[in-house]
């Protein structure tokens, strides 16, 4: 193995990679915020004991959880315009897909968190004469949220990794810029090594945070 590494060309194009990393972070942030908003609403609506409300939500969750994001992304970008005439720009299609995809998972995390709280907590609160929203807000949610934090952070990590898929519809994220840079410099090894390192540096702290939170939860309180 005598590959002669040469990062020189890369350094002169570093702006491209940084811009890509910026897009990646921006997309991650936007789709986490939108995805969580979708997730909270869907999870709360799913508590309503009416099939008319819950059936479409279960369908939505199923569709987005059981198909690959890549397929969803391409479908949203290429198939949706054909079927509906609605033409989405690459960035819009990407944000929409990743938010809906994340939303399906966040919804399940929220629902599981709420349902993991024993019935006795509801009984204790309702027996005091607390109203439904007060029970939810003061008794159930605070306990459920602590349990939800590790899976939520995990989902956010996946969310960041998933943004790399948007490069297939020409959104200029870190991976897409790496491809551009590769064709400009003919240095794929250097380019993808550096871009992998950037992904790692972005995600490693997040995974450490999950481990820390999980160990704290395991200790109880």
């Amino acid at each position: 193995m005598s590959y002669a590494w040469d990062f020189g060309a890369l350094w002169s194009h570093r702006g491209l990679l940084l811009e890509g990393a910026g897009y990646t972070l921006l997309f991650t942030f936007a789709t986490i915020v939108l995805g969580m908003a979708i997730g909270v609403v869907v999870a709360l609506l799913r508590l309503i004991p009416s099939k008319i409300v819950t059936a479409p939500l279960i369908f939505y969750i199923g569709v987005f959880r059981c198909t690959p994001v890549l397929v969803q992304l391409i479908w949203m970008y290429y198939a949706l315009p054909v079927l509906t005439g609605i033409l989405l720009g690459p960035a819009t299609a990407a944000i929409l897909t990743l938010s809906l995809y994340g939303g399906a998972f966040y919804a399940e995390i929220f629902r599981a968190g709420i349902e993991s709280i024993e019935r006795g907590q509801w009984d204790g609160a309702r027996a005091l004469g607390m109203r439904r929203h007060a029970v939810m807000q003061r008794i159930i949610m605070p306990q459920a949220l602590t349990r939800m934090v590790p899976p939520l952070v995990n989902q956010c990590i996946l969310q960041l990794k998933n943004t790399s898929l948007v490069s297939v519809i020409a959104v200029p994220d870190l991976l897409y810029q790496s491809q551009v840079l590769t064709s400009a410099t003919y240095r794929p090894l250097e380019v993808y090594t550096v871009s992998a390192i950037i992904y790692f540096l972005l995600l490693f702290p997040a995974t450490m945070a999950v481990q820390y939170l999980e160990s704290r939860l395991a200790k109880g309180r």
Binding site: G120, Q121, D123, G124, A125, R126, A127, L128, G129, I139, P142, Q143, T146, R221
Partner: peptide, 16 residues
């Protein structure tokens, strides 16, 4: 409910 206090076998204290 507020007028009828109830105590349960499993305590049901708020754990947080």
């Amino acid at each position: 409910r507020a007028n009828t206090g109830m105590v349960f076998q499993g305590f049901n204290l708020f754990l947080h």
